[in-house]
Every structure is written in structure tokens, then in C-alpha cells.
Design a protein around this nucleic acid. Sequence first.
DNA 1: TATGAATGAGATTTCATTCAT
DNA 2: AATGAATGAAATCTCATTCAT
Lengths: 215, 215, 215, 215
Amino acid sequence: MNAKLPQKNTEDLTAHILNIAAIHFSEKGFSGARVDEIAKEAGVNKSSMYYRVGDKKALYHSVIFNMITQMVDTAATRINHANSPADKLKAYIHTLADLILGQPHFAPLMLREIASGGTNMSTDTLKAMNQMKGLAKTILEEGHEAGIFRESNYALVHIIIVSTFNLIAAGTPIRERLSALTDTETCLSENPELPYEKLVNDMTNFVFCALKTNK
Amino acid sequence: MNAKLPQKNTEDLTAHILNIAAIHFSEKGFSGARVDEIAKEAGVNKSSMYYRVGDKKALYHSVIFNMITQMVDTAATRINHANSPADKLKAYIHTLADLILGQPHFAPLMLREIASGGTNMSTDTLKAMNQMKGLAKTILEEGHEAGIFRESNYALVHIIIVSTFNLIAAGTPIRERLSALTDTETCLSENPELPYEKLVNDMTNFVFCALKTNK
Amino acid sequence: MNAKLPQKNTEDLTAHILNIAAIHFSEKGFSGARVDEIAKEAGVNKSSMYYRVGDKKALYHSVIFNMITQMVDTAATRINHANSPADKLKAYIHTLADLILGQPHFAPLMLREIASGGTNMSTDTLKAMNQMKGLAKTILEEGHEAGIFRESNYALVHIIIVSTFNLIAAGTPIRERLSALTDTETCLSENPELPYEKLVNDMTNFVFCALKTNK
Amino acid sequence: MNAKLPQKNTEDLTAHILNIAAIHFSEKGFSGARVDEIAKEAGVNKSSMYYRVGDKKALYHSVIFNMITQMVDTAATRINHANSPADKLKAYIHTLADLILGQPHFAPLMLREIASGGTNMSTDTLKAMNQMKGLAKTILEEGHEAGIFRESNYALVHIIIVSTFNLIAAGTPIRERLSALTDTETCLSENPELPYEKLVNDMTNFVFCALKTNK
DNA sequence: TATGAATGAGATTTCATTCAT
DNA sequence: AATGAATGAAATCTCATTCAT
């Protein structure tokens, strides 16, 4: 029943542990997660886990740090491949959608961490998070200078995008419970076959409509 | 040193306990909150608390239920006082802003609850939550029929508004840490004197721009 | 097998726990003692022990504090009942002998605590300890003024008496092992029937000889 | 950052480890000391330490044994260089003072070991310890026969000297804390410049006064 | 010999809940 | 209704020792 554990080299095993830990912290929060269970499911002796990653707090820190830095790195890379401000904004939205909606335990982890005031984020992690906002600022300012976007509160736009994807991602189980309760569709896209693409398109469309200049 | 506790009637004391509990659950989550601490800070004997509100889960349920139903009730009332779809949408946005940004522990509680998949929400609570989305649907559909709003994914618009205000509200401590770290302003509004009004205006503006018809 | 535990009132039970704890700390030191074992032998649930006295450190602090203050109180009372400096010095020596030799776990506790630099002594405890030295000072100075004792380093005299009784008391098991090994007597008194009285007499005699004026 | 470790030959490295271990056992006792820390501070791999000196108990045994035998050897040698019983007693006292007061971790180790009933002393170590008492016996008996010393309980005299120096040595941190608390001098010698010499002189004087014959 | 990694057994502490009055 | 005391079950963490190379 244990997830297959790679024993080849040290880094792989540690990464494996962190992945399992991410799932547990995501599902139950820091206090709700159990060190015992994480170790068991990772197929690792509990003491070995302490040997490798330290105590519960250290485990959590590592999970959060990895998550944020991976996200920022991926986003920056993908945005840099786009040329026009419009394409960059699209890349920005699509990348966030991919990362947040594509990794099921990302959003809960993030929401919980924000809910506790970032208590467990190191300064480094915080700065990395802030780089995402920096990316949004650059894109919107360039677009404004090019006459494509109207002037806007870039921080607000950033939060709108990030928060929406996070709540959609984390909200899946709640929506499922709701749709089981009611006759009317409660889903975000009317076509259950293509929820993801339609959703991202709707979101992109919404943002572009809001930002386009009045000509 | 305890918050003054009203002992006159039973309801007041129970409400007092629930308020204290809300703060603790908001700050530390369900597993992180401590029954001992809640009782102590509420100035109530722990056993008495069990006698009144039941165990930890019951306490949490009550907190969540009260919060959601209060929100829905307030929102419905205020929206019904508006006449045109545009005014109703404004009322919708402003009410959510008031409720979410005005009650400091609302947003963390909500985010945590969503993060854990609504595990602790009763069906009643869920249905109440869903009524908020129903309000949005009605407003947007009426506006569309009246030719004021373009056709839109109402569930998405609802989530955009709710999630944004929640993340802004819960994100305050993180933004404060960030602004202590960096020179450049990281706040959502550039004028620190009027953060709230400007923010809600920007948000309202953003949504209306996104929804207005192309004429 | 458990020591009879008085359940009458709260203070008695706490005192009972502290007595058992004193034995364990005395025999095995702070790190060597086991909270489990103390609770078990005291016939008390481990959690109850935490409820009453706090964690291991708090337990230890209480033990040490009680021990020292009891000793100082008893000694002061008994010395005050004597009149002449000579009688007071005798009372001083006999009281210390009674307390240190009469309570088997006193000396090991004291020696370990001194060995670790008084790390676990509160300022109050330290001051209480110092009062014992103050008693010695007063006695020797009065005796010197009365022409009975020669001038002396009172702090040294104090340490000589205290340390000797402590090492004798704590050294019992070692002497027993030695006497089992060798033919020659290794005991402190040659008459095994009266070890205690002879010992205290010898000690008193030794000190008085050392202090008497050269006439 | 580690203490320089001599890797030239095996004996040096083992001695180095034992020195570090002595400090740790002295400061924290057997149970309080940590094998990990000893190895780390000695700059030696933990497994290597096991290979060289065995487990924690073996480590401790070696430390204690070395310490006792060194003390006895040194004392015996120095006493044998003196001629008259008076000089021998002086040599006895001065040697013990040198050894006990001169090696900061000697006294705590010894006190702890006595406190735990010599549990960790091998028979060899015990016998070595006992030789010290034998030296005292010889000196005092010779002096008595020569009419210089009055008849005395030699074992008591031995313990007085040994215990006093040990408590003075181990008590330094406590006296420092006390002197920081009080205005009045709490030191053993009134002149802080010469604490050691005055102390040993006072002690020697005290013992000689106590032992001298009444003529 | 030397070493990084691993681990079992056990230690301390926590905490929601219940008991007895 | 109210409360101080009690507690079982479990959670986190530690540490001497050994394994594998």
C-alpha cells in the first residue's frame, strides 16, 4: 500500500518524503497532520525522517519553501517565453492555472498558510512569493505603456487571479458535495467534459475585458 | 484579565464563548486550537463549556454555521434594498467586502474550511453558502437580460469576488511582513490612508469593466 | 507494591509525589530519572502528575526547593534554642548531621545539584542555601568575640562540615562495597553498632579542636 | 571549530576523546551526556568512537578509571617525597588541593559518581580510591606514634579533606551566582587575588590545629 | 578503519474528554 | 449548573546503537 519509494539516492528519498508530507499537510493542516502517518505512508522509519529533514516544523518549512520556489521559477520561465504584453498576461494566467489547478494539494496548503498569516514562511519564501506579484506589475505596466491595457491596480489584479484559482482548486470537494445535493448545476463550467479549459478561457476573457482600453 | 463575560443570560454567554472560539479556530485552525485555551480566555470553566456547547467539533460547527448564515442573511437583505441590476451588483460587492474585510477572523476561518474540503460543514451550512452564489446568478442574469452586462460565467464571477476579498483580508499579516522587508510599496492601495475604500472601488470598477457590454 | 498514597487532600498527594520524585532524582539524577517510573511508584496517573506539578523540570525544582528550605528552617530553629556559642556550634553540627545523614536521598540530590553548578536552583533556593552559611558566620564570630574560638575562615568551616556529612551520607554504598572487598575495616567508626553517634562526636571534636584558642 | 584533534597515533586520539567525554560527563552526568555531542565535539565520527572505546558505559568507565588512578599515582609519588609526618600531611593536603581544584571537571565527576553509589566504578577503580585513604592512615598513624598528632579517626580526616576540596571546586559556579546576588562577600577567601593559596593554607592550618597534641 | 545513514525502543508531553461532587 | 481534578490515548521527539559500504 505504500507509495513506491525510490531508494537510489538520498535526494530522491527526501523529495519523496516531502511529497507525501505535502499531501498530509494539505489535507489536514500543520496541527492535523501526523508525523507517524507521513513516515508510514512514505515507507520510511520515523527516526530516519527526523534524521533527514528534522522535526515537524522543519518538514513543513521544506514543503512550503519547495512549493513556492518551484511555482515562481516555472512561472517566470514560461512568461519570459512570451513576447507581447497580451501574450505575457495570457502566459501568466495560464501558468498559474496549470500550477494551481494541476497540483491538487497546492491550493489547500497555500490557503492554510495564508490563513495563518504566513507564520511558517521564511523570509526567503515570502520574497519568492512576492516575485509573482512583481511579474504581474511588469506585464500590466508594459501593456499600459503600449496602450493595450488601461491603468490598473496591479496588486489587485494579481490577487484576483491567484485567489480565484486557489479557491476553485481547493473548492472542488465542496462543489462536488453541492452538486450531489442540488439538481441545478453548480459547476463552474456547464460542460463537465471540459471544465478546465473553459474555466481558464473564461477567466482570461474576464481579465482581458476588465483591462482593455475604452476605444 | 479575561474579556468581560456576560453572565446574565444563557444565550449571551454561549455567544461569548463562540466569539472567543472563532478567534482561536481562525488563528490556529481546528486541530491547532486548544479547548483549554478557549475556555480560559472565555473565562468559563472547561466542563461548563462542554455542558453548554458540546465537544470541540460541536463548538466548531456552531462557529462556522453562525458565520455563514449571518453573512448570507446580511447580504440578501442589503441586496434586496437595491433596485437596478447595477446597484444590486454594487451592493453584492460592497456587502461582501464589508463582511469579509470587516471581520478579521472571518477570512482565515473560511479559507481553512475550504482548504479542508468543507469537512466540518453541515449540509445546512453548505446550502447557505450556496445561496450566495444564487444571489450572484440572479443579479447577473437580470443584468444580462436588461442589456447592461454581457453574458458571463456567474459562478466564476462569484468566486472571483469572494476569493479576492478573502485572500486580501487574510493576507494582511503577510503584506505587513513584506512591506517591512521591502522599500517599494507592496500594499494594495497606494494611499495608506484609504486602503479600504479605494480597494473596494477598484474591485467594483474591475468587475463592471469586465461585465459591461461592447457597444 | 505502591507506597501507600494518601488521597485525603490535594496537598498530601502532591507532597507524596514529591517524596517519590526526590528518591528517583536522588538515585539517578535528573536525566536518569524517569517520569513514568515516578508516577507509577507514586501510584498516580502520569497526566495527573503533569496537572499537579508540571513537567519534569518543575518537578525537580519543587523537590530541590522543598529540600533546601526545610533544611534551613529546621537548622535555624534548632540553633536558636542553644545559648552559648559552643552550644550553638554543637547544635549546628548535630542538626546538619541529623538532616543529612538521616535523610538518605538528601545528600545525593545535593551533590548532583552542586555538580551541575546549581543550574536548577532558583534564586530563592540559592539564597536559602546561603542562609546556612550565615548561621555559621554568626556562631563563629560570637564565639571569637567571647574568646572561645580562634579567628577562622567561617565559610571554610561551613563547607567542611556540610561537605563531610554529605560525602559520608552519599558514600555509604561505596563503603559497603569496599568493606566487602577488604579484610581491614574501612568504616568510619570502628564499632559498627554505633556508627552514627561516634561519627558525629568525632566530627564535633575535630572542629572544636581546630577552633579552640591557644591558651 | 572543533578542538584540534591529533590524528598521528591511536593513543593520542583516544585520549583526546576521553578528555572531551570527561567534560561532558562532568557537566551533565552520565545520563545527561550525549554520545552524539561528545563525538561531534571531539571531531570524530560516532561509529569510529564506538570502534575505539566501545559504548557509552565503556567510555564513562575509562574516564573515571583514568581520573582516579592518575590522582592516586600523583598523590602517592608526591607524598613519598616528604620525610616527616607533618610534611607528609602537608603534601597530602596540597596534592589533593592541586588535583581537585586544578582540574575543573574532576570534582563534578567525582561528586556525581559518589551520589550514584559508585555504580559505574569497577572494583579496580574502587581499590585505587581506597589507596588514598590508606595513605592518610599511614601518615596519621606515623604522626601519632611520633607524638606529633593526637589520636584521630583517620577515615574521617580523609573524608574531611577530600570532600571539602571537592565541594569547593564544584561549588564555584554557585558561589559566583551568589556573589552576583549579594553585596557581602561570599567567597571563601577575602582577598580575591589569592583565593587558592589562602584557601589551602587555611585548610592546612585547620587540620593541623585539629590534630595537634595538647601539650 | 572509517563513515553516513538508519532505526527500535523508549522518553516526555499534550489534550480532548469525563468524573465526582 | 458548575467546577477542580483526573486520565487514556496518542503525539512528538530522542538517543544509544548498529548497518552497509
